[in-house]
Design a protein around this nucleic acid. Structure first.
Length: 487
DNA sequence: AACGGCTCGC
DNA sequence: CTGCGAGCCGTTC
């Protein structure tokens, strides 16, 4: 298996080593997933291999064991085999090429931002010490906790899993809203120091001295839902939410003569929910290409879409995201900042308007209990041994995962298929297009300037055709000299 | 080195 | 007591 795919690949001699290493890494990870860690029921994304446990202790040849354990299991299940052979294996050389190509980062711009952040952090620190009446380490949750809850005697709104008073963002935000000054200052310090340490300071250190680029690693067998993960550096959590954060994205740049092209799926998980649930209202909304959060708000609040207020749309958005995550009324209440009763009424009203969604959620939980796993549209499986746990909390967590995994996992399948389609199209296009990043529902390319328009239409077409669901897939794209401009 | 707490993304 | 990740710092061992 290993040998044949290495020989079949289109790799050049130059990148043969890194590609071969990626196949080996991949295989090693599979083996660890299959035979490692002493789990009772062992699973790689798709495959449960109970029989593999005895091999875990052996210092055995990995390839041989895979042939004996994983491969027969895959062959026996058509859906699993297809996911593995038609998606995961052909994706390997694409990921290897993205890693090797890397992303150009503007080191000087990050250095400027780092100095600005240092200055502001210093000012904030002095301000915080002044308010507290004593010096303390703003980076230490423990010391913050002592200052806020012992010295200043602010109310403890929430505790960490270990029982300590929490100083997390939402807690500080609530205290700040109550008019306390120190929490507001701490919040600003937290977000800015995160930007400085992770992005403006550490990221430049990871620029390769030979290529002048950062070369991430993508992992195929880490996320249980089938998503990719990215590390060293992680390019899937580059800031975007705040103005400060978006400046970091300005340091991800296109080389001379190129632009960055970013193409992302619009509301892909909600579209998948519409497809899986076959809910008429949801299907109709997407068929009409409606603003889905506005449409949801109109249904739930019983008003025409044109009369939906900003707050109502925000509430509907929270409900929609909550549904994808399998959220409870309690969690929704916390998100919306209302009481549990009101949140429950929203949920009840939602399920009244979208009965297909309610039915789908119930059926998914039931299916998970009966078969012990859930699956994506393309047959990727996630095993949920805790779905029958006697501990209610663990069982509830497994049920939320059961709800979420088919949607998150199908989205992962679709963008992986899109990457294969884009690369197939690209080989014959004769255009200067290079895939350089994947961020869950987004692909980023370096494109030679004169090819931009053709690239844009080719890429969007390949992405939108990556799956035939009962709702259309929509892709939005933009281009610019840096990643911020491309959005 | 491992873990807890926190914050960044989708 | 809303899903999936990675990485930083401080603290503890």
């Amino acid at each position: 298996m290993l040998e044949s795919y290495v020989l079949d690949s289109t790799a050049t001699r130059h990148d043969m080593d890194s590609l071969a290493r990626k196949y080996l890494d991949h295989q090693t990870i599979l083996f660890e997933e299959v035979a490692g860690k002493g789990a009772k029921q062992l699973s790689f994304n798709q495959v449960a291999i109970e029989e593999a446990a005895p091999y875990a202790a052996e210092d055995a040849d990995i390839t041989l064991r895979l042939h004996e354990t994983l491969w027969p299991k895959l062959q026996a299940e058509a859906g699993l085999r297809a996911v593995y052979q038609d998606i995961e294996i052909p994706l390997i050389p694409i990921l290897a090429a993205m890693e090797q190509r890397g992303v150009l980062v503007d080191r000087k711009l990050l250095a400027i931002q780092s100095r600005e952040l240092a200055k502001r952090l210093h000012e904030i620190e002095a301000q915080a010490h002044d308010i507290a009446g004593q010096p303390f380490n703003l980076g230490s949750p423990k010391q913050i906790q002592e200052i806020l809850f012992d010295k200043l005697e602010l109310p403890v709104l929430s505790k960490t899993p270990k029982g300590a008073p929490s100083t997390a963002e939402n807690v500080l935000q609530e205290l700040a809203d109550q008019g306390h000054e120190l929490p507001r200052v701490l919040l600003e310090h937290r977000s800015l120091s995160k930007l400085k340490s992770t992005y403006t300071d550490k990221l430049p250190e990871q620029i390769d001295t030979d290529t002048g680029r950062v070369h991430t690693s993508y992992h195929q067998a880490v996320a249980a839902t089938g998503r990719l993960s990215s590390s060293d550096p992680n390019l899937q959590n580059i800031p975007i939410r705040t103005e400060e954060g978006r400046r970091i994205r300005q340091a991800f740049i296109a080389p001379e003569g190129c632009r960055l092209l970013a193409a992302d799926y619009s509301q892909i998980e909600l579209r998948i929910m519409a497809h899986l649930s076959r809910d008429e209202g949801l299907l109709a909304a997407f068929a009409a290409d409606a603003d889905i959060h506005r449409a949801t708000a109109a249904e739930v609040f019983g008003i025409p879409p044109g009369q939906v207020s900003g707050d109502q749309r925000r509430s509907a958005k929270a409900i929609n995201f909550g549904l994808i995550y399998g959220m409870s009324a309690f969690g929704l209440a916390r998100q919306l900042g209302t009481d549990r009763g009101s949140a429950q009424r929203y949920v009840d009203l939602y399920f009244e308007r979208y009965p297909g969604v309610k039915r789908y959620m119930d059926e998914t939980r039931e299916q998970a209990r009966e078969q012990g796993y859930v699956e994506t549209v393309f047959g990727r499986r996630l095993y949920l041994p805790e779905i029958r746990d006697r501990n209610g909390q663990r069982r509830a967590a497994a049920e939320r995962t059961a709800i979420n995994a088919p949607m998150q996992g199908t989205a992962a399948d679709i963008i992986k298929r899109a990457m294969l389609r884009v690369e197939t199209w690209n080989k014959g296009s004769g255009l200067g297009v290079t895939l350089i990043m994947q961020v869950h529902d987004e692909l980023v390319f370096e494109v030679v300037e004169k090819d931009l328009e053709l690239a844009k239409s080719g890429i969007c077409e390949a992405m939108e055709g990556a799956a035939e669901l009962s709702v259309p897939l929509r892709v939005e794209s933009g281009a610019g000299h840096n990643w911020d401009e491309a959005h």
